[in-house]
Simulated scan of single mutants.
Amino acid sequence: MGDVKRTKLLIIGSGPAGYTAAVYGARAMLNPVLVEGLQPGGQLTITTDVENWPGETAIMGPELMAKLRAQAEHVGTEIISDIVASVDFSKRPFVAVADSGLVIEAETVVIATGASARWLGLPNETRLRGKGVSACATCDGFFFRNKHVAVVGGGNTAVEEAMFLTNFASKVTLIHRRGELRADKTNQARLFANPKVEMVWNATVSDVRGEDGVSAIELTDTQTGAVRALDVDGLFVAIGHDPATQIFKGQLRMDEEGYILVEPGTPRTDVPGVFAAGDVTDKLYRQAVTAAGMGCMAALEAERFLAHGAAHETREAA
């Protein structure tokens, strides 16, 4: 066993949820320990302009995360650059073991490991990410006013993203690899009734073209193999997200997609003293500001849990 560190509050993961939980936890004198994880700062570190963060007209994603991290450290959070490899939530104190061998014993835990968008796996898709390629219409739709954008996917997320984009774009082309959508019928009816939406059936996106921004996408017909170009100004990939919850399986209740289930309106999991915040439990909003709000809630819940637990132990001792 490696070195052992003890804390009242362990935060697993960074990003808006983790750093905000750290700020509130530190201000509550819980002396939190935050383990950053594989991608310190979360998905915003690979985002360019952020224009929907309160108080910032425009800020780069990595800069915003650096500010949040600095604030968490300033108020007293101990930040560890490591990855939690395993956890044991069967009894308190909870135990987390990091890749380095460090063992952390914690009275409460906030899980803020986030979720990552599924991508198509195209080389130019990665190169043009943030330059016309996106996985979040709510985040980036504003930048495509009066432009032609494409959405790839066939489920409710893809349909909802396409419908949202019609508020800004002059035309939205939804591309699906099959001949019918998986989205529910109500969403499909709304989509098909919108004059700004055009469907491309039985096609996959096989490449993204452009130098400093998206200029076109390459479509491959799934039935004939024929390849053609479609001129667009942006591509939104809406084929789902994967929550980073692998190490918590068997420890916490999750839904069929691996998102951690919490008590409605709270960050409480089914294990008292363990809380979840941000995209690891939220598959509806997926916004930095909502993740931060949930991080705040989780830290406040941890503080209350510890206060009530201490009061109970005092009464039992008497």
Rank of each mutant, 00 (worst) to 15 (best):
T7L: 04
L10T: 11
A17L: 10
G18V: 00
A22G: 15
A26T: 10
R27A: 01
P40E: 05
L44Q: 06
L44W: 00
N52G: 12
W53N: 13
W53G: 12
G61C: 07
G61V: 05
L64S: 08
K67A: 14
A72L: 01
H74M: 13
I79Q: 06
I80F: 07
D82E: 03
F89N: 04
R92F: 02
F94W: 03
A96T: 11
I104S: 10
E107G: 09
S116A: 13
A117W: 04
A117V: 02
E125V: 04
R127N: 10
G130P: 01
V133A: 06
A135L: 00
D140P: 03
F142G: 01
F143M: 07
R145Y: 11
R145E: 13
N146I: 02
H148E: 11
A150R: 05
G154E: 05
G154T: 04
V159W: 08
E161P: 04
M163Q: 14
T166Y: 08
T173D: 09
R177L: 12
R182G: 04
A183Y: 05
Q188W: 00
A189F: 09
A189H: 12
R190F: 13
F192D: 11
N194L: 03
N194E: 07
P195G: 07
K196W: 06
V197A: 06
V197Y: 02
T204K: 13
S206Y: 00
R228L: 01
A229V: 10
F236I: 10
V237F: 04
A238S: 15
I239W: 07
P243G: 11
T245A: 05
I247T: 14
F248A: 07
K249V: 12
G250L: 09
L252G: 06
M254D: 00
Y259R: 02
Y259E: 04
L261A: 12
V262A: 06
E263Y: 03
G265D: 05
T266H: 12
P267R: 09
P272Y: 11
G273V: 09
V274N: 04
F275R: 08
A276E: 08
D282Y: 11
V289T: 15
V289C: 08
M294E: 15
G295I: 01
G295C: 05
A298S: 08
A302F: 05
R304M: 14
F305S: 07
F305W: 13
E313L: 14
E313N: 10
